[in-house]
Amino acid sequence: MESKKSQRKRQKEIMLVSQMIKLYCHKNHTNQNGKVLCEDCQQLLEYARFRSAKCRFMENKTFCSNCRIQCYSPEMKKRIQKVMRYSGPRIIIYHPVLCLKHALTGVIEKRRTKCD
């Protein structure tokens, strides 16, 4: 059974990834209505959700990019990296609180791992 901490981390990760994919899709693809993702971005989001749901290291990891095991397929890894490169610098404009929480989590985890 999964701990509450892992469940919360998984939910936060999926929320952030979905917001970043939505931002990328709405700014780069033809579907600009803000409600529906294009087929490729919807597929990437479903894949990210699936990989997060199967992650065995959720309790101890910070972010997927820092994980010792890269579980994304090479094609999906390239696609999510493209999304992250685009959305990363822009997400603070659209979701400042979410972005600040993400940054704070990263700082806390770096300090924690230095002490270990």
Results as ranks from 00 to 15, higher is better:
Glu109Ile: 04
Val97His: 03
Leu100Ile: 15
Arg51Asp: 08
Val107Asp: 01
Ala53Cys: 03
Gly106Pro: 08
Asn31Asp: 14
Gln43Gly: 02
Met58Gln: 14
Ser65Asp: 02
Phe63Met: 09
His95Ala: 13
Gly88Leu: 14
Arg68Gln: 07
Leu44Met: 11
Asn66Lys: 12
Leu104Asp: 04
Asn60Trp: 01
Lys35Gln: 15
Thr113Leu: 13
Lys82Phe: 08
Val83Ala: 06
Gly88Asp: 06
Thr62Pro: 00
Tyr72Pro: 01
Lys35His: 02
Cys115Asn: 15
Lys35Gly: 04
Gln7Tyr: 11
Pro89Cys: 01
Cys55Val: 10
Gln81Trp: 06
Ser18Ala: 13
Cys67Ser: 00
Gln7Trp: 05
Arg10Gln: 11
Gln19Asp: 06
Val17Lys: 12
Gln81Tyr: 09
Lys82Ile: 05
Ala53Glu: 11
Ile91Cys: 05
Lys12Trp: 04
Thr105His: 15
Val97Tyr: 05
Leu45Trp: 09
Leu100Lys: 09
Tyr86Arg: 04
Gln11Met: 08
Ser3Tyr: 05
Leu23Cys: 05
Ile108Phe: 13
Lys114His: 14
Glu75Cys: 00
Lys4Ala: 13
Tyr24Gly: 00
Lys110Met: 11
Met58Pro: 02
Glu59Gln: 11
Lys9His: 15
Glu109Ser: 15
Lys77Tyr: 11
Val83Ile: 06
Ser65Cys: 01
Asn33Arg: 12
His29Phe: 11
Ser73Gly: 06
Ser73Asp: 10
Ile21Thr: 00
Glu39Asn: 12
Met20Asp: 05
Phe57Cys: 11
Val83Pro: 01
Arg10Val: 07
Lys61Phe: 08
Tyr72Ser: 07
Asp116Leu: 09
Thr30Cys: 09
Glu75Thr: 04
Phe50Ala: 05
Met84Ser: 03
Cys115Gly: 03
Phe57Gln: 02
Ile80Val: 12
Tyr86Pro: 01
Glu39Met: 08
Met76Lys: 02
Asn28Trp: 07
Tyr47Arg: 03
Thr105Lys: 15
Lys5Glu: 14
Gln7Phe: 10
Ile14Asp: 01
Met15His: 06
Val36Arg: 09
Met58His: 06
Tyr86Lys: 02
Lys35Ile: 08
Lys5Thr: 14
Val107Ser: 04
Leu100Glu: 00
Arg51Leu: 11
